[in-house]
Amino acid sequence: MLDSTTIVSQMAQLRGVLLLCLALLMSGCGANQVVVQSQFPTPVLDPLPAKVGVFFSEEFKTHTFVDDPEEKTERSWVVETGAAQVTLWQSILTHLFEQVVYLDALPETGDDVQEPAESTPSQPQVDAILIPTIADLQYAIPAQTNSKVYEIWLKYDVILNNPDMSPISEWSMTAYGKTPEAFMLGAQEAVEAAAVVALRDAGANFAVNFPRVPAVRTWLQENRISAEPVSSGGTP
């Protein structure tokens, strides 16, 4: 015979087991959440003698990639890269230019100004304004491609304007990172590792190729900012 205390105790244990099973089932339904967090190495660059204003939009600073599954059996992916983007770009820019000023807002262009000067934000005292934006992020995991690597592609649009917001140049830049499938490395950790490789690649691509963009090169020459691009890569 079981007394009431024993029954209550067993019911509590059973409830605990059921809750645990439910939690396990629920954990399989959530999205794959990846928050890219990384410290990037200090770039070895000779800074260009220029004072550049940099504007990171809210969208850039909080950049999050969301991919909903096509089939119900798959889990969605949420990849947050915003914080890592800001860390990387700040690291690159502070070493690429002698002076960097981070702008909270962009100065209004002549077309935007509705009223006379008192309502127009003053032009920042800089040589140029740089605005990087993330145009696209794509990923591939072994389950989708049958390959043995996790991959991340990033596409940036970079705008370089004069202080009055008249354009100097606008160009696109890509970055790529991959990490091999590894034993004991979960999909989320692998995607994060691939994102970190892609961000490093983005930094390298921008730092090395910025002075080679034709319009930027002309701007550097016109403003007597020394830029001797160094060739890298090439055929073996």
Binding site: T42, V44, L45, I92, R200, V208, S232, G233, G234, P236
Partner: peptide
Amino acid sequence: ELYPWFEPRTAPMHPSA
């Protein structure tokens, strides 16, 4: 130590580089 000059994209492919 030598970031960004020896990344896959930027690494020198021949000694003259």
